[in-house]
């Protein structure tokens, strides 16, 4: 058995990541041709003082409306790939810490064992002051039954903490989801 290599240490993106990373910004993840219900997810990223974080970068990864990931390891033939939707998003935050993604509501995907995961979006969060990126998830507050059975949400003991992952529906397919780094409503981040 060969020795395992230890992964290279992470570092912060720093304050100037925009020059290297904004070329791949992708906030309009869905087009008119994309199957499913088009939604808009907006929010803000705030620090431990409740102040806007204007130099963060958010990346999203999600399944399409049928619950299929556009990736070689998702080979489920019964769930169609959507050629107009790849499931990846990237955005910097604006001066008010804000972000906005246009996407489609993902379908449910398999979880451990025979479980089914509620519709969700995986989030990677980068910023100045974050030496390694954080992972969290966006769930949808209007999927109460699916959320209640979700095997990952079920690992969060406190209901108030679970609620930090629930995007709240607004008018016209909009959802609101904020990222709070510290404090009473501190967002749940995952050890993955």
């Amino acid at each position: 058995m060969t020795d395992k290599l230890i992964p290279t240490a992470s570092a912060t993106v720093g304050p100037y990541f925009h020059i290297g990373l904004t070329w791949l910004n992708h906030t309009e993840m869905a087009t008119a041709a994309t199957a499913g219900r088009q939604i808009v997810i907006t929010g803000r990223v705030v620090d431990g003082n409740g102040e806007a974080i204007p130099d963060a970068m958010i990346e999203l990864w999600q399944a399409n409306a049928a619950g299929r990931y556009d990736h070689p390891e998702d080979g489920r033939e019964d769930k169609p790939v959507d050629r107009s939707f790849h499931g990846y998003g990237r955005s910097r935050t604006d001066n008010d810490g804000g972000f906005r993604f246009v996407t489609v509501k993902p379908g449910p995907v398999p979880g451990p064992g025979n479980t089914l995961q509620a519709p969700h979006v995986v989030v990677a969060l980068f910023m100045r002051g974050l030496l390694k990126h954080l992972y969290t998830r966006i769930y949808f507050a209007d999927e109460a039954a699916a959320n209640a059975a979700d095997p990952i949400l079920g690992l969060i003991d406190d209901e108030g903490r679970r609620a930090t992952l629930l995007a709240q529906p607004g008018p016209d397919g909009t959802y609101r989801w904020d990222i709070v780094m510290q404090g009473d409503n501190e967002t749940v981040f995952f050890d993955v």
């Binding site: 100045r128 002051g129 954080l134 095997p151 501190e186 749940v188 050890d191």
Partner: peptide, 14 residues
């Protein structure tokens, strides 16, 4: 002011 203060929640990879 930017590091999480609560432990990260361990989850399996799906």
């Amino acid at each position: 002011k930017r590091a999480p203060t609560r432990p990260l929640v361990y989850i399996p990879h799906t």
